[in-house]
Design a protein around this nucleic acid. Structure first.
Lengths: 229, 229
DNA sequence: TAGATTGTTAATCGATTAACAATC
DNA sequence: TAGATTGTTAATCGATTAACAATC
């Protein structure tokens, strides 16, 4: 039942001392640089990035400085160079193999494969729970039944898994993914699952997101909460 | 282009001075209490909750104490009472109306309606982009074309929206949702969208989640990062 | 050179933890 | 009463901001 810990533990630092907040901001900067580069710009200052990102310029410099001196005083940062460096930090330059558990999401969201590929995540194995599905592959990605997971994962050297479909024995699927060597699991299904230490997991829960959202726009604790700013 | 700000700005306090971290922990406590209540327990101590949640017991007490004294010294917290109080804090006791933009997700994940209902979120309007879809409703929820959004939303008094499908003119849909009075938008589609101040938005981005996850299990910055613990 | 902007240190702010008096 | 556990305050820890010398 330690399961939910990782789902909610969004704020921990990893072994590298880099907080998830920093990683999220780096993603955001990367996104901003994409736009700026697309618009044909060449250099950008920390204040410009900060303004778009909605943070202070010092924080942008601090975040970047942590990984090396990418800028030049009075000039700023070279956009395409900085973009490459951030991609490097985020590991977007290496191909990462992903196992997809549940194939239906690809019908619902056909662009997923391409969106993952844009970040160098490649789905190279699909597991199905649908025993009536005898298609051998989707877009040349082989479909297997969930029984041989562990061995197939291990042979392919897959480190990432996306669980996209509810199944009663979800935990046993997870166990087999983990024993096959998977190190990070993104769970889109409503199942509550547990993983051993050393395996990262994140559970996307739509009702939960709505609850959190509703707080962003509520003010019903004006009275009850004495500490309120 | 201020758009991404809210997507990444997960860590802000809301107007009530309650941080999203606190809300997330309350959700987690609620979840834990469900389990404990299901197992037939009656009282629980902050240390027991803390152990399951993976936090310190003082933090559990502090989180709860912020909203009122729900416990009794030497006894602990009455599970069903505390559960009700947390539900109350999270607003799970009031019905909240939700507009669903894009109907395909209900085929992909039929349990969504029920999972939302368990938290008192009721989808009571569906907008489709599929002009070949002439079904009048899904499970008695009317399906409308996206053209009359604003008026329909306003008349129904809907405050929440889930955007679940890519569409080229996503921003105009958002604008019409907002002008219809929607205050919180959960975006599952890859579109980048912007909302005015006072409207909360959260973008679920699968590749982004994988990037963040990959950091939880990586240690490639052992060398580069001098501040590392 | 003068102006701009970086990298980095010190100050501040907020969140968590430790500790303990109050109380059941 | 003695033991347990709450509610809450003070201490600590970590993240952000302000400020500024270095440098282009």
């Amino acid at each position: 039942m330690g399961s939910d810990v990782s789902d909610f533990n969004l704020f921990s630092r990893n072994e590298n001392g880099i907080s998830e907040r920093t990683i999220n901001r780096l993603r955001q900067y990367s996104c901003i640089l994409d736009t700026l580069e697309g618009a044909g710009n060449c250099n950008v200052s920390s204040s410009e990035i900060a303004k778009i990102a909605g943070v202070k310029s010092g924080l942008v410099r601090k975040d970047l400085c942590r990984f090396g001196g990418f800028g030049r005083p009075s000039v700023g940062y070279n956009i395409s160079y900085l973009r490459k460096q951030i991609h490097n930090i985020l590991g977007l330059n290496e191909e990462k193999l992903v196992a997809l558990v549940g194939e239906k999401i690809l019908q619902y969201e056909p662009s997923l494969t391409k969106r993952l590929a844009a970040n160098n995540y490649r789905i190279n194995m699909i597991f199905t729970f649908d025993s009536t599905n005898f298609e051998p592959d989707i877009n040349h990605i082989p479909i297997d039944s969930a029984s041989d997971i562990s061995k197939l994962i291990k042979n392919a050297g897959i480190k990432f898994a996306i669980i996209s479909e509810f199944t009663a024995d979800c935990q046993s699927v997870v166990d087999r993914l983990v024993s096959g060597g998977v190190k990070a699991i993104l769970n889109l299904a409503p199942n509550v699952i547990t993983v051993p230490d050393g395996v990262a997991i994140r559970h996307i829960d739509i009702p939960g997101e709505l609850i959190a959202l509703s707080f962003k726009c509520s003010n019903k604790f004006d009275i009850i909460d004495n500490d309120a700013v």
